[in-house]
Amino acid sequence: MNIEIVAFAILATIGIASAILLVLQKNPVYSALLLILHFMALAGLYLLLNAQFIAVLQILVYAGAIMVLFVFVIMLLNLQNEQALVDNFNIRKIVSFILGVVLFLQFAVFFLVKAKNDIDIKKSPDSIDAGSIQNIGEALFTTYLIPFEIASFLLLVAIIGSIFLAKRKIE
């Protein structure tokens, strides 16, 4: 058995388990901590795919910056314990739950059976370089120069919009 498959199995199990536990928690702080665990598992999966840069970003941005935001929001809003998911089940939620499961199964069957040959599982030898910082930087400043610049405009609009909507007083 390949060591990669073992690592994948462990990381995937941690990822799925933490995601399910996250939703089922009553205390939002526990949910936030489980989310960190989930991000860590995802970062590990990225590493297995030879995407070192994305893995580092995942930890830095999500587990670092975004999580601090989450914790701050939880602290500031002074959230009470959430009602457990099971307590307020009604017919609507059951139906949407079933539909969600059906969609998930459809996708799973699709990927495992129909599209099996479309996904190239074998890694080419130069894919180790593809995820490196050097190659990503090169792509960003040549092929994807315009999208890269537009991303900065996207951030600018996000900043302006949030300040405009949240400013205390508008003259």
């Binding site: 537009i150 991303a151 996000a158 919009g161 909507l165």
Partner: peptide, 15 residues
Amino acid sequence: LTFLALELMSLSFYV
């Protein structure tokens, strides 16, 4: 680029 442009448009419209 299409995705980023769509997001740029949508984000402005949300606000």
